[in-house]
Design a binder for these strands. Sequence first.
DNA 1: CCAATTACAATTGCATGCAGTCAGCGGCGA
DNA 2: TCGCCGCTGACTGCATGCAATTGTAATTGG
Lengths: 241, 241
Amino acid sequence: MQSQQSRVLVQLRDLILKGEFGPGERLAEIPIAERLDASRTPVRLAFATLEQEGLVQSSPSGGYVMRAFTRKEIDDAIAVRGVLEGMAARLVAENGLTRAMSEELAACIRLGDEALAAPVLTIDGYADYVEMNNRFHELLVKFADNAALSRAIELNNRLPFAAASATLPMHSSTGDGRQWLLITHNQHHAMLHAMERREGTRAQALAIEHVEVARMNLRHAYEKAGETMGLMPAMRLLAGR
Amino acid sequence: MQSQQSRVLVQLRDLILKGEFGPGERLAEIPIAERLDASRTPVRLAFATLEQEGLVQSSPSGGYVMRAFTRKEIDDAIAVRGVLEGMAARLVAENGLTRAMSEELAACIRLGDEALAAPVLTIDGYADYVEMNNRFHELLVKFADNAALSRAIELNNRLPFAAASATLPMHSSTGDGRQWLLITHNQHHAMLHAMERREGTRAQALAIEHVEVARMNLRHAYEKAGETMGLMPAMRLLAGR
DNA sequence: CCAATTACAATTGCATGCAGTCAGCGGCGA
DNA sequence: TCGCCGCTGACTGCATGCAATTGTAATTGG
């Protein structure tokens, strides 16, 4: 049995990321404590952590309010992810992949190949791709073997829509979703190829370019806000400009 | 009058960074609460924040213990700072400096010029240089106008010896300390020059190269651990390897 | 009718009580 | 003498009480 505070933290973060609270909304301790079946103390602890993560902000008059995210903030965070993952890819390439690392990444990519093999993308195939994508990015960071880099990427990924797979659902509503997955997956292939050949600069450039699709998805989501809102309730956290 | 929890957080972080606690040492709530003249609650809040910052870690059996930092961790964090500040410099260069920004950076650099003008570096001149250095790096990040980038750099700088001026005292004990300051300050000049001319790639490369001096200082400090320990008590947080 | 002031209710920040748990120490047995 | 077991003391995690402050609403005065 885990502690109350970690349970509350996870559940509260989930609620926030599900768009349960509107931007600027006051987050009162007592209702949340009752809702998560805990006392106010672990809730306050969770707030302190969530403030560090940038999901809530402390109100000058006390207490915490839900943050709003501008489009620029998300876009900037994705750009930062590109630079950080670019560093990770470069480090992996420069340090060289062991046989085991290479295998693990290749196995991961093969899962993506299979998910995209069918001419029409099923829901399951899509879910498989998302999982593969998350795994690939995690492995990349892990193999870079740089704790500060891992921390920076983790912090950055806590922002809504900044993480690797966060913007994937945005174009799934359109017919050409599969096409973009093919393109980004080709970048995965190229990154592995570059890292295996110790081409650090190429691997880095690919990782940086890789996030441009995410930025494009974000742009797309803003234009079709109505459609994406349905499948991504957290969109309401994005303030107008 | 500020809140207890922010006061305790700042004071406790100071104590830690002054090397008050040894690596692995258990940080008991009650003695710390008494020492900082607060109750256990704000101390617990501060621990939660400090854990996010990576300065303390929660013990599996409850409570928190002081973290130890390996040499590789610090070295890696400095490398991450190089990449992030490189991104900042590139963004500033690409977006273009306004007249006011350019002036502010130039004024900052002039202070450095003055501090280094004397043939022998006085204590005051050294302190001026440190302040100028901090300011220059702060301005760089601020002018990049990217919140996610600022956050990442701030988090990274919380690690001991990762921040811009943290490794400066390390070679001040040696006679050639002024020489290295001249070199790094020349890099400041070059970065401003590159940014004014919108040479993004050059500005980025300079910022990345800029941290190599810090890494060298760290190496130096390890070799002369005995000397540096006197003026930087936090060195005891660095575990052997 | 509007604005200002006051009173009240709710909520936060902090302190502390309480129970569960872990660690350290001493004693006992082999 | 060494190792193991049990006990006790302390500390953490959590809940809750209390005071101060803020936000709100109602009432009164202009």
